[in-house]
């Protein structure tokens, strides 16, 4: 797995790109929701996909977690799968802000809507800084209200080599919302991403 290792400079660079992307995403969200979003430093971690299921099983012990997946494709072989994990209580917070009423949308639709907003606002910001652009596959619900989400995560994660774990916390003025986003990236895209980071680092 040494080939997929990131240097401290590369990690710092990626962290800053994530930071800027989060800022852009939050700005859009804040305007859309007509509320203020308090940004926190997003904790990013590059992890072996094998460790992911255990990590999240521990974090969400005994809680039902929804798992939504969204594929993204960019130029130059940059592609992957973004996974959002949240507790339903957290989704309800956003649903209220987005003015979902119970009768005209199912929970499934609400989950996929919110996931595509959070994922694509963030990924568009990241792509822009990499001089790239992403197209997206429609979001899929891997599991909802499921205590065995870790198994489903394991089945999804094993197809990929590297996971970029982004801990997203949006503190809204009146609500606190927290979810996890995991970017699963295939090996060749990791190499490509490192080249892009090196180019950015070389220019400064």
């Amino acid at each position: 797995m040494t080939a997929l290792h990131f240097t401290e400079e590369q990690r710092d660079c990626l962290q800053e790109l994530v930071n800027v992307a989060m800022g852009q995403a939050s700005d859009k969200l804040a305007r859309y929701l007509a509320t203020m979003v308090h940004l926190q430093v997003p904790a990013i971690k590059l992890v072996d996909t094998q460790q992911l299921p255990q990590h999240f099983a521990q974090r969400y012990q005994q809680q039902s977690v929804s798992l939504i997946s969204m594929g993204f494709f960019g130029d130059q072989g940059l592609r992957g799968e973004a996974i959002m994990l949240y507790q339903l209580a957290n989704v309800d917070v956003l649903a209220r802000l987005l003015e979902y009423s119970d009768d005209d949308s199912s929970e499934a639709e609400m989950l996929t809507d919110i996931s595509s907003v959070l994922t694509t606002t963030f990924l568009n910001g990241l792509a822009e800084q990499l001089d790239n652009s992403f197209s997206y596959a429609a979001p899929r619900i891997l599991s909802s209200r499921d205590q065995h989400f870790a198994d489903k995560l394991a089945a999804t994660a094993q197809q990929w080599q590297l996971a970029l774990q982004v801990d997203i916390r949006y503190q809204l003025t009146d609500y606190s919302f927290h979810c996890d986003m995991i970017l699963l990236i295939p090996g060749e895209a990791v190499l490509r991403l490192r080249q892009m980071l090196d180019q950015i680092l070389a220019s400064f």
Binding site: N19, G23, S26
Partner: peptide
Amino acid sequence: VSADIQPQM
């Protein structure tokens, strides 16, 4: 110099 570009901020 920030990425947090919300008007309120």
